[in-house]
Design a protein around this nucleic acid. Structure first.
Lengths: 204, 204
DNA sequence: ACCTGAACACCGTTCAAGT
DNA sequence: ACCTGAACACCGTTCAAGT
């Protein structure tokens, strides 16, 4: 009781504990984070603004670890690939994070910079300005979806249909890597075709 | 107090009230659903197994309304387009539903049938079996992402970056429809390219 | 069979009290 | 400045009591 001589907590420690907790699998509560740190729940509020803030810290932390911002590529195709792979790395080890972050507004400047950078690269490459957000959403959603599926397809679909259940069982984690490559190829092919249309709109 | 002469509730009434509540915007709680129906919260448990069950009912209800299961198409390209558009319709009017359903296992037989059907169509078209789930995930994620963005891009990204903020402001709802078409075109082009590779793997 | 109020074990968050 | 315990207004869910 009372103030400790050296602080027990810090923003970094809280973020780390939150990541650990999420990976462990239990429900994500402020109280559980506090328990990880052997501290009472209200203590966290000296360093952090609340539950949502903790999740935003986790996003920032994992994004920098996954090298999301470092995606400085020369050409747009490489930029797309790096963006997707970084995003996928971000979530791949932490599938339980996805439902926690979907629907939460992204506020972390570092993460937003990565999005803004990709938007600029795509625009410079010749993509129509009002398509940029769609393209980014597709990439974003794809990385997220494939991370979720590769980690736990059974958690997404629960089928009694024999054929579909077999398909689910069959698609195991090792194959998911190849599936990611295939998915990226699909997206890049599609985007290349799109770019041609954007650049030569009246070519015939 | 006591049992009413005619039942006040039904599974359908609960599902409808839940949809209304979600669209209204407040937090989704069992108590709030009960309030919509002028009934106490425990009453719902006579018809429904709990909060998650209610959400699954909502998914089923909106899926059938959006015509997800009706996506019986002749060729795979049409099947893909119908699937994406139905999915997008499902969420487009109810963006607040997305964070509630992501991360929840899909159990509704009708919805699962739509996925299984699409898987079969794609397999028959020549897609590699271990890619089917990836392809479906991409489509799924795309429909979801585009519905979320078109409804409320400001809820997804909150940027102080001038350029990016401008891009967000600029991408208004009316354009989102065109963006959906573009996105579908991107996906179909990419998938066509993929299909060629799958079918002629040793062509050179 | 179907609704109610009371109760239980939780939440996230606030705040006065302590050092 | 930083941690604590008590307190507040909520949750989802269970259950005996009522008709």
């Amino acid at each position: 009781m009372g103030r400790p001589s050296a602080p027990l907590l810090s923003v970094d420690k809280i973020a780390d504990a939150a990541v650990r907790l999420i990976d462990q699998g239990g429900p994500f509560t402020v109280q559980a984070v506090a328990r990880q740190l052997h501290v009472s729940a209200p203590s966290l509020y000296n360093h952090v603004q609340g539950r949502d803030h903790i999740l935003e810290l986790v996003r920032a932390r994992l994004a920098s670890r996954a090298g999301l911002a470092a995606a400085e590529a020369s050409d747009w195709e490489q930029a797309v690939e790096l963006f997707v792979r970084a995003h996928r790395r971000l979530f791949a080890g932490h599938p339980r994070l996805i439902p926690l972050l979907v629907g939460q507004t992204i506020r972390d400047p570092g993460v937003l910079q990565a999005y803004a950078h990709l938007a600029r690269v795509l625009e410079r490459a010749g993509f129509a300005r009002d398509e940029l957000l769609t393209v980014i959403s597709v990439l974003d959603a794809f990385a997220l979806g494939s991370a979720l599926d590769s980690a736990a397809p059974a958690e997404v679909w629960h089928s009694d249909d024999e054929d579909f259940a077999a398909l689910l069982a069959e698609t195991a984690a090792p194959r998911a890597e190849a599936a990611l490559d295939a998915g990226i190829a699909i997206l890049l092919d599609g985007l290349r075709a799109r770019l041609r249309t954007d650049q030569e709109p009246i070519s015939d």
